[in-house]
Nucleic acid binder design. Sequence first.
RNA 1: GCCGAAGUGGUGGAAUUGGUAGACACGCUAGACUUAGGAUCUAGUACCGCGAGGUGUGGAAGUUCAAGUCUUCUCUUCGGUACCA
Length: 888
Amino acid sequence: MMDDRYNPEKVESRWQEYWEKNHIFRASEDDSKKKYYLLEMFPYPSGKIHMGHVRNYTIGDVVARYKRMNGYNVLHPMGWDAFGMPAENAAIDNKTHPATWTYQNISTMKSQLKRMGFSYDWEREVATCKPDYYRWEQWLFIKMLEKDMVYRKESYVNWCEHCQTVLANEQVEDDSCWRCGEMVQQKKLFQWFFRITDYAEDLLIYCDKLPGWPEKVTLMQKNWIGKSTGSEISFKIETKSSKEEYIKVFTTRPDTLFGATFMCLAPEHPLVESLSKGTEQESAVAAFVDKISKQERSSSSIEKYEKEGVFVGAWCINPANGRRMPIYTANFALMEYGTGAVMSVPAHDQRDFDFAKKYNLDIVVVIQPKDRETLDPETMTAACPDSGVLVNSDKYSGMDNFEAMDKITSWLEKEGLGKKTISFRLRDWGISRQRYWGTPIPVIHCESCGVVPVSESDLPITLPEDAHLLDNGGSPLPTLDFFKKTVCPKCGRTDAKRDTDTMDTFVESSWYFVRYCSPHFSTAMFDKDAVKYWMPVDQYIGGVEHAILHLLYSRYFMRVLNTLGLIDFKEPFTNLLTQGMVLKETLKCPEHGYLFPEEAKISDGKASCTKCGKDVEIGRVIKMSKSKKNVIDPNDLLNKYGADITRLFCLFASPPEKGLEWNDDGVEGCYRFINRVWRLAATCIEMTKNSIEAINVDKNVDSNRKTFLPYSGPLSGLLDSDAKKLYAKAHQTIKKVTDDIEGSFHFNTAISAVMELVNAMYSIELNANSSDEIKSVALFCIEHIILLLSPIVPHFAEEVWELMGNKSGSITKQSWSSYREDALVTDELLVVVQINGKLRSKFSIDANSNDEVIKSMALADEIIQKHIEGKEIKKVIVVKKKLVNIVV
RNA sequence: GCCGAAGUGGUGGAAUUGGUAGACACGCUAGACUUAGGAUCUAGUACCGCGAGGUGUGGAAGUUCAAGUCUUCUCUUCGGUACCA
C-alpha cells in the first residue's frame, strides 16, 4: 500500500544508500560502450553549498542520468578546488589551520551533495590540496621549465607596507588594504610566468573550431586574446653621440605615420631613464615615474587617472618626413602591450588628441575622409579615426588609407625601419603567489647555480602543514627555515633557498578533469590509456563567470600537455553549457540594513521587517550573495522538500543558460506536481490490481504474470477514442522530452510536456471499471512518465518504479523511453481560418484531407460566411493541414 | 566608450524553415468535498467592451496574404571589457 503522498525524507535516503551500496555510478573504461564524459565545474570548498552549486550540479546530474539511460558509459566525477585564499583568511579569523578548515568544509559539502542525490562516482574524488594531486602539477612545472615554457621576470604586485604583505586584486578596496586600510603600493618582484602567449594564435584559431561552445564565450575569449595586426616601426633617436639608437613602436595605423608628431613611452620603458639622464628633465621624469609606480593598476581604478605625461628631454625622428618628435613618458602607455611605446598621431587618435591639446603639441591631419569637410587642426574638437584619403603624406598623398597601410609598411621594410607584425592583448600568465595555501613552486635558488628545478625524485614538495598563519595575512613560508633552507641539487651548496611562492589556484583547475580519468594513478600525472578513453570532456557545465580565465587556461594547459607529447588532443571540452545565475530580490530595512528572506514578512508586494516592523524596501532581483543576504540555504530546502523537489524547481523555473529567479511559491507548485504524479501512479496500480481476477486473458494481459501489461503497439490497434488520444499524447510527450533534452537541455519545457500528459490522464476517468484499453494505455503512460522524470527526480522515480511492481532493480538500469512514429499523429487535425490574417474560425478535419477540401470547408464555414458576405475574395492561401487565409 | 545578450499577461516562462501569441506553472477569483484546511478536485483568468467586436509580444517605420519571429532606426535593462597604440 502506498503512502498517500511522496515522503522525501524516507524515500531519498533509502535510495541513496541503495545506489552507494551497489556502486551504481561507478565508472570504468569499457571499449565496448560509447563513453560520455560529463563534467561540472568543481567547487571551491568555502563552507556549504549554495544555490548556484545546486543548480549547476542538478543540470549536470540530469544529463548524466539521461545519457546512462541512453546506453552511454558515463564518467561523472566530483572533487574540490581546495587551495585558495579564503582558507587563509578563515584560518586567521578562526585561529585554525587552512587544512583543517578546508577538510571540514569538504566533508560538509560532500554530505550535502550526497543528499542531493547526484550520481557521482565518488571513488574518483580529487582534492587539489592533497600532495598526491599537486605533485603532478609540480612535475609538469619542471617539464615546462625544461622546455622553456615557463620563465621568471620582474613584475608588479599589490603591496601593503603596513602588513608587509602582498595583496590579491580582490583584497584591494579603494586603493587601500582591506585589512588595515593603508594605501596599496606597487612592488616589483621576480615571479614565474607561463608562456601562454606562445599559443595565442592557436587558442584564437580554435575559437572558431568549437561548435559546441556558446558563441558568446568564444567571442569573449577572442576579445580577451585581442589580436591586432599592424606594423612595427623604428624611430631614430636624436643623439649627439655617434651610436645609433631607435625606439620601436607598434601601430595598427601605419597609414597615419606622416601625422605622428610626438612619441609616448611607458613609464617603465628602459629608454625613459636613459634618455632623461643628464637633461634638465631628469628630476621631473624620475618624480613622474615614481608617482605612477605607486598608483594602483587594477582596471577599476585606471579611469580615475587623467592622461598625463612628462617630456623626457629628448627627440626622435619620424622616418617618413624627418620631423623632430618630442619624446614623452605617459601614464597611458603600457609596457606590457606592443613595444611599450606609442607613436602619437593626435589628428586621428582621440587619446593622442587629448594629450596634444593638454601639452600644446602639434596636430597634423594626414587622412581626409570622403564626404566630409576638410579637416583643420585649428578647429578640430576631436580626433578623426575614420578612413579616407591620405593628405600631407608626400608621395602617398591621394592614396586610399587601406592601400597606404601596406605601401608605407613595405617601404619601411625596404629601408630596414619597419615590418608587418601582430600584437596580442593576451599577456603571459603570472602564476607566482606570495601565499601559503597553494602548490609550492618546485625550484631552488642557489647563489652559484641560479634557479635549479627540484629533482623529480624529490617530488612532491609538500606544503608544510605545521605552519601558523601570520596575523597580517602574509605567507609564513619565507619564515620557515626547515622549509626554505635546503641543499642545491646541482652543486650541493648548503645555503640554497627553496622558492617560497605558491602557484595561482587556476593552475590546479586547468587539468583536474584529466586527473579524474585515473585519479589514483601514482606513477604519472595520469594513465594514458584512461585519458585516451575518456578525454576530451563531452559536456562541461559551469558558471559563465569562468568564460575567460579558467576555460582559456584549461585550453592552454591541454596544448602544453600536447606539445610535451603526453596527450593527442588540444581542446579539453567539446561542448560547453554556461548556466545562468540564481537570482533573488533584495530586502532592505531602514534600520537593520539588508535582511535575509526569513527576516521579512511579505504580503501583497509589500514587506515589513520582523525585527522592527518597519517597511522594507524590496530591491531588484540580483544574483544571490551573502553580502546582500538575498540567499536561500539549500539545507532548508532539503529539510522542507527534499532533493527531488529542489531539483525539479531548479530545472522547471527557467532554461539553464538563463538566470533563475528564486520563488518559494514555485517550489510549492513543484511539490504539488510530484504528488499529482504520485497519486496518479497509485491510481494506476490500484486500478490494474483489482482487475486481475475479473479480466479474461487477452492481448493486454500477460497470463503468466496475471497482471496488466502496458500497451505499446501501434495506434491503430486501439479502438477507444480516449485511449487513442491519450496514447498519441504519450508518444508525443516522449518525443518532446527527448528532443528538449537532447537538443538544448531545455528541461523546463520537457517538464511542461510531462505535466501536460499528467493533466491529460487526470482528465479521463481511471478506475477499476475503466476499459481494458484505457487501463493498458494508462499503464503505458504512467510507466513512461516515471521513466521520463527519472533523471530529474531520481529518488521519486525509483520508489514509484518499485511500487509499480518492477522488482528487477534500479530504474537507472532502464533504457530511455522511445516513441513510435506511427503513434505521433492523430487522425483529426485542427485547421484555423483567417480573413486578412485575422483569426476568425477553426474546425477539425480528417488528417488525410487535401488542400482543395480544406479550402472549400473553410469557405463553407458559418462564421466565415458571415464575414465574407458581400466582399470580393481576392485570394485564398492554404497552408498544408494547418491554416487557411482568405484575402478579401 | 567598445562588444554581446535580452525586452512577451499580475509573476516565472512557452511559441522562431514567418502560419492559432500566452503552452506549463505561480498568483488570483468562484465553486465542490470537508469539523477544518495552507490538502485535494472543478471552472475561470492578456487587455478594453454588456455584446458583436476591437487592441495587444519595449517604441517607430518597413517587407508579406500572414511578423513575437525578417529588415532599418530607436529606447531600456543585464552581462563582458576597458588607457591595447
